[in-house]
Amino acid sequence: MSEIDPNNQPVQTSDVELRHKYWQENIRYVLILLAIWFVVSYGFGILLADWLNQFKLPGSGFKLGFWFAQQGSIYSFVLLIVVYVRLMSRLDRKYGVAED
């Protein structure tokens, strides 16, 4: 195996370890993003919706809990995937496992 990582060190010696680290970091990103995913939908949109409804989304007539349930959570989902795509592309390059 002759893959070279960005620091110009041969990957060969610690290939298994490197894969392991790549996977660990990937899992960490996924867990953080899923925590946000849970909070904006199940948290703000459902569990805390009644409480949040006493506030309004600034500059609009939306009750906050209702807005998260019908609008905000969906916007957040789209953003979460954008962030994930970027983080993973960077991670792939860092560990030299990108496809190009």
Binding site: V30, L33, L34, W37, G45, A69, F77, L80, I81
Partner: peptide, 13 residues
């Protein structure tokens, strides 16, 4: 709304 969009986050990640 949440159910049919939130699944895509799971799909992507």
């Amino acid at each position: 709304l949440m159910g049919w969009t939130g699944g895509y986050v799971l799909l992507a990640l």
